[in-house]
């Protein structure tokens, strides 16, 4: 080469190359239509039972809930292994089935039966309750992005594989949920970091962005141990990898039946109380 090549050319070439790399664009998919299926969410805690019933819809439809009339024709019942049973009552206000007579207790197993034209049954049992340890808000930096974490920890159930579910409510509505294991924290406090929002999201404060927290938001955290079958359903549902459906706990219907005794933590979100790492 006659002349030494300047760094600028290489930098330009590298930047140009990277710019040419990956890109995304929206596409139309010719979705297949399949028969609609019932979907059941049944949660039995130490306060009683809540169940929600819905149906799948085609990909080209907006997600619609069943009408009150359709739901009132359905029957949802809970049974314990002592022979006690309770028929859940449909509440038009929240569209859920409620029951308070049967409550989750350690050492018992339960069954929920959902009846439309046919019966769909799922069984489950509670695991020994965990204990709440600590919770805090903290800013942390991930690469070049500043992220707000909600860090909490609970006690592991010693000497056994333990599976948990947490649900975080904001102003009474579900804000975040997930499941986790004690993998890496056996016989210790299990630490969970929930990624809530980035600093950029917070500054942008888009009213459509449901992730953004505001001063005064009332936060309620519920953490509970769950059995492995329930964990597997929720874990696959959450990760939804390889186009895999979670294995339903109900025969001929989608859904799960979780029986648990939660621990709770409540606070009011204040940005000024967030710790800097």
């Amino acid at each position: 080469m006659k002349k030494p090549v300047s760094h600028n050319i290489f930098i330009f070439a590298a930047v140009f190359m990277v710019a040419m790399l990956s890109c995304t664009h929206q596409i139309d998919v010719d979705y297949k239509s399949v028969a609609k299926q019932w979907v059941v969410e049944a949660n039995l805690s130490d306060e009683g039972t809540l169940a929600k019933v819905s149906k799948t819809v085609d990909m080209t439809d907006t997600v619609m809930h069943l009408s009150t009339e359709q739901l009132q024709d359905l029957k949802v019942s809970v049974y314990d292994d002592n022979g006690a049973s309770e028929s859940l009552v449909f509440d038009e206000k929240d569209g859920l089935f409620h029951g308070s007579a049967i409550k989750a207790e350690e050492g018992k197993s339960y069954k929920v039966v959902f009846t439309e034209a046919e019966e769909h049954t799922a069984s489950s049992y509670p695991i020994k309750a965990t204990e709440f340890v600590d919770a805090k808000w903290q800013w942390t930096k991930m690469f070049t992005i500043k992220v707000l974490l909600f860090k909490f920890s609970v006690k592991d159930i010693p000497n056994e594989a333990t599976y948990f579910r947490y649900r975080i409510y904001r102003n009474g509505k579900i804000y975040k949920w997930s499941v986790f294991r004690d993998q890496g924290f056996q016989n210790r406090d299990v630490v969970v970091n929930v990624n809530c929002m980035t600093e950029e999201q917070m500054k942008k404060n888009d009213p459509d962005d449901e992730q953004v927290l505001h001063d005064g938001d009332e936060i309620r955290l519920e953490v509970a141990t769950i059995n492995r079958v329930t964990y597997d359903f929720l874990h696959v549902l959450k990760s939804s990898r390889n186009g895999a459906n979670p294995v339903s706990m109900f025969a001929n219907a989608l859904g799960y039946f979780a029986v648990y005794i939660p621990v709770k933590y409540e606070c009011v979100f204040q940005l000024s109380n967030v710790l800097e790492k």
Binding site: S33, E41, S54, K55, M59, W177, N242, G243, G255
Partner: peptide, 13 residues
């Protein structure tokens, strides 16, 4: 590849 053929809600997601 696997694409969904239907959708449903759980915990409002």
């Amino acid at each position: 590849y696997s694409a969904p053929s239907a959708k449903y809600t759980i915990d409002d997601n």
